[in-house]
Amino acid sequence: MAIKRMDHVGVVVDDLEAAVAFFVELGMERAGGVMPVEGRWVDRVVGLDDVRVDVAFVQTPDGHGRLELTAFHHPVATTAEPSAPANTQGLRRLMFLVDDVDDVIARLRPHGGELVGEVAQFEDVYRLCYLRGPGGIIVALSEEVA
């Protein structure tokens, strides 16, 4: 049996519209509207009771990479460590290849994007940085050096 594709990555956020705006400013596109999700089926899938969430999808312009942004109304979302550092175990970052790292940083700052470290160059190949984004996740940016 083979995997057909990786469908999406789920990101839990506290402010759904702000998270959508952040990723749209990054260059992703909305994929539909906000969808409320609740019912016994979702309780069974996620292993929680009385789940009520709003979900929005954003996708890369080519349509292949998608994020499911989820805001929990019940039960309230929790976090073990707000703004966890990059070396915390688990899913730590989403990496995006962009045309201009400096431009993307400037556009994301008004949407809450904060540099984790600084922009650095890896050999003559990439300029890279980590930004803290919605829900404290790390969004890594990579720019190919010409």
Rank of each mutant, 00 (worst) to 15 (best):
67 L>H: 07
11 V>Y: 10
32 G>V: 09
25 E>I: 02
77 A>T: 03
101 V>S: 08
119 V>I: 11
136 G>F: 10
15 D>E: 13
24 V>G: 03
136 G>Y: 09
108 L>F: 07
44 R>C: 04
11 V>L: 15
112 G>F: 03
81 E>W: 04
51 V>W: 05
80 A>S: 11
95 M>C: 15
63 G>Y: 03
31 A>G: 00
31 A>C: 03
70 T>H: 01
110 P>C: 11
20 V>E: 01
2 A>K: 13
60 T>N: 04
83 S>W: 12
84 A>Y: 08
139 V>L: 12
22 F>I: 07
93 R>G: 06
121 Q>I: 11
5 R>V: 04
2 A>R: 13
113 G>H: 03
145 V>D: 08
116 V>G: 07
37 V>Q: 05
68 E>W: 04
36 P>A: 02
6 M>N: 06
106 A>D: 13
86 A>C: 01
94 L>W: 11
137 I>D: 04
67 L>G: 09
1 M>D: 09
63 G>P: 10
114 E>T: 12
35 M>I: 14
79 T>K: 06
8 H>C: 08
60 T>S: 15
106 A>P: 02
86 A>G: 02
85 P>C: 11
103 D>Q: 13
59 Q>F: 01
118 E>C: 00
61 P>D: 01
90 G>H: 10
59 Q>D: 00
3 I>Y: 10
130 Y>E: 04
92 R>E: 05
42 V>Q: 06
64 H>M: 12
7 D>R: 12
92 R>W: 09
139 V>E: 02
17 E>L: 02
138 I>L: 15
82 P>G: 04
25 E>Y: 00
35 M>N: 08
133 G>A: 12
79 T>Q: 14
110 P>F: 10
58 V>N: 08
145 V>G: 09
5 R>G: 04
80 A>I: 10
21 A>M: 02
90 G>K: 13
59 Q>L: 00
126 Y>M: 12
124 D>V: 04
109 R>W: 02
113 G>Q: 03
114 E>L: 09
1 M>A: 10
84 A>K: 15
70 T>W: 00
89 Q>F: 12
20 V>P: 06
13 V>N: 00
20 V>Q: 01
79 T>P: 02
84 A>H: 10
111 H>Q: 14
54 D>G: 00
114 E>W: 01
108 L>T: 07
10 G>T: 14
132 R>H: 09
1 M>R: 10
30 R>L: 01
108 L>V: 07
126 Y>K: 02
21 A>H: 01
146 A>N: 11
74 H>W: 08
104 V>N: 00
85 P>E: 10
102 D>F: 00
18 A>M: 00
11 V>G: 06
55 V>R: 01
75 P>G: 08
86 A>D: 02
28 M>R: 01
100 D>C: 03
55 V>L: 13
38 E>D: 11
109 R>C: 01
118 E>Q: 12
63 G>V: 06
81 E>A: 13
40 R>K: 14
116 V>I: 14
93 R>N: 14
119 V>C: 04
84 A>S: 13
125 V>R: 11
55 V>Q: 08
123 E>M: 13
140 A>P: 08
54 D>K: 00
102 D>R: 14
108 L>A: 04
125 V>M: 11
63 G>H: 05
38 E>Y: 05
100 D>S: 05
17 E>T: 05
112 G>Q: 04
